[in-house]
Amino acid sequence: MARLLSFAMFVAIWWIASLFAGDAKLPPPPTVLTAMIAEARSGDLFFHLGATLARVTLAFTLAMALGSAIGYLMGRVRLADRLGDPWLILLLNLPALVVIVLAYIWAGLTEVAAIAAIAINKLPTAVVTLREGARALDAALDEMATVFALPRWSRFRHVILPQLSPYIAAAARSGLSLVWKIVLVAELLGRPNGVGFEIGVAFQLFDIPLLLAYSLSFAAVVLLIETLLVQPFEARASRWRPRAA
């Protein structure tokens, strides 16, 4: 209910703002909705959204898997931490644009280059978060697992993973928002499809309804994924915690 109200307020503010700004700068909701429906009818909307979603899925999975493994290693093994730290700082502070442009120059305007560039941008934040998680692992539970000779897999699944899961959730949450932001830039600069590409086209034609139609559809997809995938996962992972009153 509160969410619906919040959404209604968003539309109302938009509508009022469009009256002040004028159609040319900010078209009112019905105009954008019409553009959205037209794009959906032709199938373009779903094609571009699909292309973007596929890139996000691949880059996100790649970065999370690699980043978690590297972060865990760096948190547990001192030498790995020492060796990896300078690289990590470099990657953390490297502007996304630099990575994307270099990837396109070195690997050509290809799908691989785009996905790799997005993944590299997300990777260091996952590493940093998971390294903190691995450092915070409870030594007392480790000892318990050793004394009771828990098998490797059971130890990982029942002792280590639950301790890491808040960190994994945090990395996924912040990483996902980062990937959403970067994927459009990568598409704008070097892909012939995707939401980023369409927004680039709309920008060049100064077609603001089209621009907003794609931006808002994209935002809707993000919200949907957040509510249907990320939040239920978080709720499940923390179900053992005593509930706040």
Partner: peptide, 19 residues
Amino acid sequence: RIGFVFQEPRLLPWRSVEE
């Protein structure tokens, strides 16, 4: 086989008693 009862119980908070 060792059975160890630590001073602090050292249970896994995210698993039930039986688990």
